[in-house]
Lab assay of single mutants.
Amino acid sequence: NQASVVANQLIPIQTALTLVMMRSEVVTPVGIPAEDIPRLVSMQVNRAVPLGTTLMPDMVKGYA
């Protein structure tokens, strides 16, 4: 099973992502693949992302 990127904390809207905000976890449905974590650093979320939420491509500006 492929690991996805999951929020390690509440990430407020417009926040630039850092490594400490994300973790990898095998979840359903599958979100952004964990191997993309380095690419996500400094990208902004376009909505508030609660703790434990799987990051989906449409939540990160410039990802999809």
Results as ranks from 00 to 15, higher is better:
Asn1Ile: 15
Asn1Ala: 15
Asn1Asp: 15
Gln2Ala: 11
Gln2Thr: 14
Gln2Phe: 14
Gln2Gly: 14
Gln2Glu: 14
Gln2Ser: 13
Gln2Val: 14
Gln2Arg: 06
Gln2Met: 12
Gln2Cys: 09
Ala3His: 14
Ala3Asp: 05
Ala3Leu: 10
Ala3Gly: 14
Ser4Val: 02
Ser4Cys: 04
Ser4Asn: 01
Ser4Leu: 03
Val5Trp: 03
Val5Arg: 00
Val5Cys: 07
Val5Lys: 01
Val5Gly: 02
Val5Leu: 03
Val5Asn: 02
Val6Asp: 00
Val6Asn: 00
Val6Phe: 01
Val6Pro: 01
Val6His: 00
Val6Ile: 14
Val6Gly: 02
Val6Leu: 09
Val6Gln: 03
Ala7Asn: 01
Ala7Thr: 10
Ala7Glu: 01
Ala7Asp: 01
Ala7Tyr: 02
Ala7Arg: 01
Asn8Ala: 15
Asn8Tyr: 04
Asn8Asp: 09
Asn8Ser: 10
Asn8Trp: 04
Asn8Gln: 11
Asn8Gly: 08
Gln9Leu: 10
Gln9Lys: 15
Gln9Tyr: 12
Gln9Asn: 07
Leu10Trp: 13
Leu10Thr: 11
Leu10Lys: 13
Leu10Phe: 15
Ile11His: 00
Ile11Pro: 01
Ile11Met: 03
Ile11Gln: 01
Ile11Leu: 07
Ile11Trp: 02
Pro12Leu: 06
Pro12Arg: 09
Pro12Tyr: 05
Pro12Ile: 04
Pro12Asn: 07
Pro12His: 08
Pro12Trp: 04
Pro12Ala: 09
Pro12Glu: 10
Ile13Gln: 13
Ile13Thr: 12
Ile13Leu: 14
Ile13Asp: 15
Ile13Ser: 13
Ile13His: 12
Ile13Arg: 09
Gln14Cys: 13
Gln14Ala: 15
Gln14His: 15
Gln14Leu: 14
Gln14Pro: 02
Gln14Glu: 15
Gln14Asn: 12
Gln14Tyr: 15
Gln14Asp: 15
Thr15Leu: 05
Thr15Phe: 05
Thr15Met: 09
Thr15Ile: 06
Ala16Lys: 10
Ala16Asp: 08
Ala16Thr: 13
Ala16Gln: 11
Leu17Phe: 01
Leu17Asn: 03
Leu17Met: 13
Leu17Ala: 02
Leu17Cys: 04
Leu17Ser: 00
Thr18Gly: 04
Thr18Asn: 05
Thr18Ile: 07
Thr18Val: 06
Thr18Tyr: 04
Thr18Arg: 07
Thr18Ser: 10
Leu19His: 15
Leu19Asp: 06
Leu19Lys: 09
Leu19Gln: 09
Leu19Tyr: 12
Leu19Cys: 12
Leu19Asn: 08
Leu19Trp: 09
Leu19Met: 13
Val20Ile: 14
Val20Gln: 13
Val20Ala: 14
Val20Leu: 12
Val20Phe: 15
Met21Leu: 04
Met21Arg: 00
Met21Gly: 02
Met21Ser: 03
Met21Val: 04
Met21Gln: 03
Met22Val: 08
Met22Lys: 00
Met22Ile: 10
Met22His: 00
Met22Asn: 00
Met22Thr: 01
Arg23Leu: 05
Arg23Asp: 05
Arg23Trp: 04
Ser24Asn: 06
Ser24Ile: 08
Ser24Gly: 11
Ser24Tyr: 10
Ser24Trp: 06
Ser24Arg: 07
Ser24Val: 09
Glu25Trp: 05
Glu25Asn: 09
Glu25His: 07
Glu25Pro: 00
Glu25Asp: 13
Val26Gly: 04
Val26Arg: 05
Val26Pro: 06
Val26Ser: 12
Val26Phe: 09
Val26Tyr: 10
Val26Ala: 09
Val27His: 02
Val27Ser: 05
Val27Cys: 06
Val27Gln: 01
Val27Ile: 06
Val27Trp: 03
Thr28Ile: 09
Thr28Leu: 09
Pro29Cys: 06
Pro29Tyr: 04
Pro29Met: 04
Pro29Asp: 06
Pro29Gly: 04
Pro29Glu: 06
Pro29Ile: 06
Val30Gln: 15
Val30Asp: 08
Val30Glu: 14
Val30Ile: 14
Gly31Ser: 01
Gly31Met: 01
Gly31Leu: 01
Gly31Lys: 00
Gly31Ile: 02
Gly31Phe: 03
Gly31Asp: 00
Ile32Asp: 02
Ile32Asn: 01
Ile32Pro: 00
Ile32Cys: 05
Ile32Leu: 04
Ile32Val: 08
Ile32Trp: 03
Ile32Arg: 00
Pro33Ser: 09
Pro33Gly: 05
Pro33Glu: 04
Pro33Ile: 09
Pro33Met: 06
Pro33Phe: 08
Ala34Leu: 03
Ala34Gly: 09
Ala34Arg: 05
Ala34Ile: 07
Ala34Glu: 09
Ala34Ser: 14
Glu35His: 12
Glu35Thr: 12
Glu35Ala: 10
Glu35Asp: 09
Glu35Cys: 14
Glu35Ile: 12
Asp36Gln: 12
Asp36Tyr: 11
Asp36Met: 14
Asp36Asn: 14
Ile37Tyr: 02
Ile37Phe: 03
Ile37Ala: 08
Ile37Lys: 05
Ile37Gln: 04
Ile37Glu: 01
Ile37Met: 13
Pro38Ser: 14
Pro38Leu: 13
Pro38Tyr: 10
Pro38Ala: 13
Pro38Val: 08
Pro38Arg: 09
Pro38Glu: 11
Pro38Gly: 12
Pro38His: 15
Pro38Phe: 10
Pro38Lys: 12
Arg39Gln: 08
Arg39Ala: 07
Arg39Asp: 06
Arg39Ser: 08
Arg39Pro: 02
Arg39Trp: 11
Arg39Phe: 10
Leu40Thr: 02
Leu40Arg: 00
Leu40His: 00
Val41Ile: 12
Val41Gln: 06
Val41Met: 07
Val41Thr: 06
Ser42Gly: 14
Ser42Leu: 09
Ser42Lys: 11
Ser42Ala: 11
Ser42His: 10
Met43Val: 05
Met43Cys: 07
Met43Phe: 07
Met43Lys: 09
Met43Thr: 01
Met43Ser: 06
Met43Tyr: 09
Gln44His: 11
Gln44Thr: 14
Gln44Glu: 15
Gln44Trp: 10
Val45His: 02
Val45Asn: 01
Val45Lys: 00
Val45Arg: 00
Val45Tyr: 00
Val45Ile: 05
Val45Pro: 02
Asn46Phe: 08
Asn46Leu: 14
Asn46Trp: 08
Asn46Arg: 09
Asn46Cys: 09
Asn46Tyr: 12
Asn46Ser: 11
Arg47Lys: 15
Arg47Val: 13
Arg47Phe: 08
Arg47Trp: 08
Arg47Asn: 09
Arg47Leu: 10
Arg47Gln: 15
Arg47Ile: 11
Ala48Gln: 13
Ala48Pro: 11
Ala48Thr: 15
Ala48Tyr: 13
Ala48Lys: 11
Ala48Ile: 13
Ala48Gly: 08
Ala48Val: 13
Ala48Glu: 13
Val49Tyr: 03
Val49Phe: 03
Val49Met: 03
Val49Glu: 02
Val49His: 00
Val49Ile: 15
Val49Gln: 02
Pro50Ala: 11
Pro50Gln: 13
Pro50His: 09
Pro50Val: 07
Pro50Glu: 13
Pro50Asp: 15
Pro50Gly: 11
Pro50Arg: 12
Leu51Ile: 10
Leu51Phe: 15
Leu51Arg: 11
Leu51Gln: 14
Leu51Asn: 15
Leu51Tyr: 13
Leu51Thr: 11
Leu51Met: 15
Gly52His: 07
Gly52Cys: 04
Gly52Trp: 04
Gly52Leu: 04
Gly52Asp: 08
Gly52Val: 03
Thr53Leu: 11
Thr53Ser: 12
Thr53Gly: 12
Thr53Glu: 12
Thr53His: 09
Thr53Arg: 09
Thr53Tyr: 10
Thr54Ser: 04
Thr54Asn: 03
Thr54Met: 04
Thr54Leu: 04
Thr54Lys: 04
Thr54Glu: 00
Leu55Ala: 02
Leu55Gly: 00
Leu55Pro: 02
Leu55Phe: 09
Met56Asp: 03
Met56Thr: 13
Met56Glu: 06
Met56Cys: 07
Met56Phe: 09
Met56Tyr: 08
Pro57His: 07
Pro57Gly: 07
Pro57Tyr: 10
Pro57Trp: 07
Pro57Glu: 07
Pro57Asn: 05
Pro57Leu: 05
Asp58His: 12
Asp58Met: 10
Asp58Trp: 10
Asp58Leu: 07
Asp58Arg: 06
Asp58Val: 08
Asp58Asn: 12
Asp58Thr: 09
Asp58Tyr: 13
Met59Pro: 01
Met59Thr: 05
Met59Lys: 03
Met59Tyr: 13
Met59Trp: 12
Met59Phe: 10
Met59Asn: 06
Met59Leu: 05
Met59Val: 08
Val60Gly: 02
Val60Thr: 02
Val60Phe: 05
Val60Leu: 09
Val60Pro: 00
Val60Met: 05
Val60Asp: 03
Lys61Gln: 15
Lys61Trp: 08
Lys61Thr: 14
Lys61Phe: 11
Lys61Ile: 15
Lys61Asp: 14
Lys61His: 14
Gly62Ala: 12
Gly62Leu: 06
Gly62Arg: 06
Gly62Ile: 04
Gly62Asp: 14
Tyr63Trp: 12
Tyr63Ala: 03
Tyr63Arg: 03
Tyr63Val: 04
Tyr63Glu: 03
Tyr63Lys: 03
Tyr63Thr: 03
Ala64Lys: 13
Ala64Phe: 06
Ala64Glu: 14
Ala64Gln: 14
Ala64Arg: 10
